[in-house]
């Protein structure tokens, strides 16, 4: 049993009734990083959706910026127990990117520069639930926070919102990505506190 440390509170505010279980509010934006930060030049950047053999949809940075951009205000919940409320982002809805994609697949693997992966069911990326964002709080997204562009799937724990995203591959079955291989939940709903296996 842990022994309480007299006078220690930690840097967090009180639990907020509006947060998922086990979460604490933070004012900052902690930088989470499991490896070196990839430095990606915009002229080299691309994003692709691989829907099956011979069906790849690809966008350059300019093509992505030319698509309709949406402003998103949302709360985010990191599995390491911090939450941040009312964050603002700008980017392209995945509904826009999947408009011309034909597939029967139900699952996806999200890929990033640097080799990170995370799995998300396709339904959780569609119907206004996910975006490829390139701005945070009105500024270009910093590389430490996933810039040039990251996935934003705010209804799942934030490890699903892959930093430095560069592609989504459709899958017939649900396979684990990086953290899902290393002890974390295949789905990751913060309101049901689906943190671990």
């Amino acid at each position: 049993m842990a022994v309480p440390t007299s006078g220690f509170t930690g840097r967090r505010q009180n639990r907020d009734a509006d947060l998922p279980p086990g979460q604490y509010l933070t004012d900052g934006f902690p930088v989470m990083s499991a490896g070196p930060t990839p430095q990606v030049l915009l002229r080299d950047w691309s994003f692709q959706i691989v829907a099956g053999p011979g069906e790849t949809h690809q966008w350059t940075w300019e093509q992505m910026q030319a698509l309709p951009q949406e402003d998103v205000t949302t709360d985010i919940h990191c599995v390491t127990h911090w939450s941040k409320v009312g964050t603002t982002w700008r980017g392209v809805s995945l509904d826009t990117l999947f408009e011309d994609v034909e597939s029967e697949a139900e699952y996806t693997m999200v890929h990033s520069y640097g080799g990170y992966t995370t799995n998300v069911p396709l339904d959780d990326l569609l119907d206004g639930k996910a975006w490829i964002v390139s701005e945070f709080e009105g500024e270009p997204l910093q590389s430490a926070h996933g810039g040039p562009a990251r996935l934003l799937v705010p209804h799942l724990y934030f490890w699903k919102s892959a930093k430095w995203v560069n592609g989504i591959r459709l899958m017939d079955q649900d396979l684990p990505g990086f953290w899902e291989t290393n002890g974390y939940n295949m789905y990751g709903d913060p309101w049901r506190e689906e943190r671990y296996w």
Partner: peptide, 22 residues
């Protein structure tokens, strides 16, 4: 600074091992 501790190869930066606390 991640959901778990990730140890990478100093030569090629590939992930060697990962330790997560549940």
């Amino acid at each position: 600074k991640a959901p778990g501790m990730v140890l990478r190869c100093p030569t090629c930066t590939a992930v060697l091992l990962c330790l997560t606390d549940q």
